[in-house]
Design a protein around this nucleic acid. Structure first.
Length: 508
RNA sequence: CGGGGCGUAGCUCAGCUUGGUUAGAGUGCCUGGUUUGGGACCAGGAGGCCGAAGGUUCGAAUCCUUUCGCCCCGACCA
């Protein structure tokens, strides 16, 4: 059957972005929906990506003085109740464990052994880690306490979507306690900076760092900092958050210590996290109509070698050449790590294998066939170029250039994403401009429209909520960059005086 | 929780309005052969008690009732 379609993914991004997204996840073989409502099965290619993200972030956390630890999955309900805003924020999405035994009744297993106090499956661990911190902190000499946990959490979301919003997801949560508010704030900002750098340098996703408005804050936090990315339907996605919790949680959990002056004081705490949502962000930021494109720095496999075996007689020879190349490439390194290379020996015909790897978004494909053996050449194809753009180069040259090629793909992806964001970021002066920017032509089935809008905001929390209800536009952040923030002016929506500009966008 | 839609082969779905042998297609899978530098072809084969329970009927994937689950749009969502 002749191939009819030009691109691997249907529909194209500009036809139906949400559907495109689902198709990319499926075609890349990263994850699938499971039989458990809202919970995904992360398959090897997706989990491999998460492992890279995890390993590279972990290095950054360690470099900034943090240590990993692990806390219970189950949290006594009473812990959550200790912080009023916090419990309010999470109450509606908690999965609750009420029993500890099953009994067979009429052929069915029914819960028995009711717990005197129910547990929730952690939606986040501030409270239970706080309880541990309360035991660990006695003196100002025990501070700062810098802990990170890699874990799964559960939030009973109403509308799950693979990677973007699932009931169970994987994440990392940093929890720290400090002697002074200044130190806690410094920590909050430091990790905010780590996220910004990680997104930009590792995932090739440019973000706008900034502070959340009151209404968008983490339940119980005094300040929430966010890094906001734009994806290809021009919506914003919160990619990582860092919270300054003040003394709210230390008071709730009793994290107090004897200070330098001999007085009893409550610690100042922070928390910060990123999740498997980063994978969803990456898909939507870089993918194209042929599927996923993974930035080389985090790709589970950076280079795949595809043997071309037209005749059985050449099989051994071709495979030997492939493995030889594999060895040579593995001796090279990029970003201080050996190249991650794989030979795909599966006996599949035609371009099937090639297309699979295109859809998986592997950064570089190398084909080796009998003709190459004669000439000592290989065919190299970059995922960020046209999928027929092969360069035939000498095998040794390919080895020598590979690290540079990967760096080049990485920076190309970042530049592309940055150019896209700039193209769809607009400065607004008036409410008319605001509505012109954010109103789709076709309200029934909105086309891709809008983007990031920079404009002055001087409204109240209530006015912000009303704006969101009416236009679906939210204030993504108050940007940290003074240039984006700008001078004081007049609020584009309310006409009231405004300290500076904010980033408006529709969001995931 | 409101509005809409859907449960039939691993996957995507047709068949149902108008009940009638052994329930279909494409794709995927297995076997053999021809192929192989961009999604190949031929032949053969395996795979489904039609989401579940009850009812109507000589006869139910199809009609009726109940129930469970999923998807989409809202509401909700650090």
């Amino acid at each position: 059957m002749a191939k009819q379609q030009q691109n691997a993914i249907s529909p194209a991004r500009d036809k139906n972005f949400p559907e495109w997204y689902q198709q990319v996840v499926r075609a890349s073989d990263m994850a699938e929906n499971s039989e458990v409502r809202g919970c995904m099965v992360i398959k090897p290619w997706g989990y491999g990506l998460w492992e890279q993200i995890q390993a590279q972030l972990d290095v950054m956390f360690k470099e900034t003085g943090h240590k990993n630890a692990y806390f219970p999955l189950l949290i006594p309900v009473s812990y959550l109740e200790k912080e009023a805003t916090h419990v309010e924020g999470f109450a509606t999405e908690c999965a609750v464990v009420t029993h500890h035994r099953l009994e067979l009744q009429d052929g069915k297993m029914v819960p028995a052994g009711k717990l005197s106090e129910p547990y929730v499956i952690r939606p986040t661990s501030e409270t239970i880690i706080g309880a541990a911190f309360a035991r660990w902190v006695q003196s100002y000499r025990d501070l700062p306490l810098l802990i990170n946990q890699w874990a799964n959490v559960m939030r009973w979301e109403m509308r799950p979507r693979l990677f973007l919003r699932t009931a169970e997801f994987l994440w990392q949560e940093g929890h720290t306690a400090h002697e002074t508010p200044e130190q806690a704030m410094e920590e909050t900002c430091k990790m905010h900076g780590v996220y910004e750098e990680f997104l930009r340098e590792h995932l090739a996703i440019p973000v706008i760092p900034g502070e959340k408005t009151e209404g968008e804050r983490f339940p119980g936090a005094l300040n929430t900092f966010t890094v906001e990315a734009m994806v290809q339907d021009r919506k914003a996605i919160q990619a990582g958050t860092s919270h300054f919790l003040g003394q709210n949680f230390s008071k709730a959990a009793g994290i107090d210590f004897e200070g330098r002056e001999g007085k009893r004081e409550f610690a100042w705490t922070t928390s910060w996290g990123v999740s498997t949502r980063l994978i969803g962000t990456l898909i939507m930021a870089h993918g194209d109509d042929d599927g996923l494109i993974i930035p080389p720095r985090v790709a589970p496999t950076q280079v795949v070698i595809l043997p071309i075996i037209p005749k059985e007689e050449v099989r051994e020879e071709v495979l030997a050449a492939c493995h030889q190349l594999e060895e040579k490439l593995r001796a090279e390194s990029a970003w201080n790590a050996p190249l991650r290379v794989e030979v795909d020996e599966r006996d599949l015909g035609g371009g099937v294998k090639n297309w699979e790897w295109i859809k998986k978004g592997v950064p570089v494909r190398i084909e080796i066939g009998p003709r190459d053996l004669e000439k000592g050449s290989v065919a190299v194809t970059r995922r960020d170029g046209g999928h027929r753009d092969k360069s035939f180069i000498a095998s040794d040259e390919a080895v020598a250039q590979m690290a540079e090629t990967l760096l080049s793909i990485q920076s190309n992806l970042l530049e592309r994403a940055l150019a896209f964001r700039e193209e769809h970021t607009k400065e607004l002066q008036s409410a008319e401009e605001f509505y012109a920017f954010f109103t789709p032509q076709n309200s029934g089935q909105p086309e891709i429209h809008g983007g990031f809008a920079l404009g002055h905001w001087g409204g109240t929390a209530e006015e912000e909520e009303a704006l969101q209800k009416e236009s679906k536009v939210t204030i993504r952040c108050i940007p940290s960059d003074p240039e984006l923030r700008g001078e004081s002016g007049v609020c584009v929506i309310t006409g009231k005086p405004a300290e500076g500009r904010v980033v408006f966008a529709k969001a995931y």
